[in-house]
């Protein structure tokens, strides 16, 4: 999510800089000096190997793939400070995760609970474990077989945002759904 926004921003920048270039005063282009042509023997012709015609793959992620899950469903839900209860936006996303997982029953997942750095290390492992379990239970209630789900807490050890402010910390209070096997 954050990544794609970032990409968009990059693209916007690229476009901007092209525009900026276009605005520059035109440079005088001198054609390269003419080069006397040396006659070279033509190489023997070899026909290209016969090619099979294959249809181009459809654009966008392959349905049932990890990319499909990340891009079209969303693999991370966020929590409020020191909370492990699910927010409404988290529930909506987990509903989509559950529907996707029901559609692709071979997929196994690991729910990784994360905490921000504004807590002590050991307590945050416990908090991350609680967040992972909350997500696991929600997905189970929505029809995902418990045997497909494992949980782990990374405490405050694996931040996705590295800033030192609430903006970063709110990103780091999350549960990440990682596909461990069975994706297309």
């Amino acid at each position: 999510m954050t990544k794609s926004v970032f990409k968009l921003a990059l693209l916007a920048c690229a476009t901007l800089s092209v525009a900026a270039c276009a605005g520059k005063k035109p440079e005088v282009v001198t054609p390269p000096p003419a080069v006397a042509e040396q006659p070279t023997p033509a190489p023997a012709y070899t026909p290209p190997p016969a090619a099979d015609t294959t249809p181009l793959p459809p654009t966008g992620p392959v349905p049932g793939s990890q990319q499909d899950f990340v891009v079209n469903v969303g693999d991370r839900v966020f929590f409020d400070l020191d909370q492990s209860s699910l927010r409404e936006d988290a529930k909506a996303l987990l509903d989509k995760q559950a529907a996707w997982l029901v559609r692709y029953p071979a997929v196994k997942i690991r729910i990784e609970g994360n905490a921000d750095e504004r807590g002590t290390r050991e307590y945050n492992f416990a908090l991350g474990a609680r967040r992972a379990e909350t997500v696991s239970q929600y997905l189970t209630a929505k029809g995902v077989v418990p045997a497909r789900i494992s949980t782990i807490s990374y405490g405050k050890e694996n931040p996705i945002a590295t800033g030192d402010d609430e903006q970063a910390w709110s990103q780091n209070r999350n549960a990440h759904t990682a596909i461990t096997e069975g994706a297309q």
């Binding site: 492990s84 050991e122 492992f125 416990a126 474990a129 609680r130 992972a132 379990e133 909350t134 696991s136 239970q137 949980t151 807490s153």
Partner: peptide
């Protein structure tokens, strides 16, 4: 030590 199981530590 602590053990976290089923979300409870």
């Amino acid at each position: 030590y602590s053990v976290a199981q089923g979300g409870n530590t």
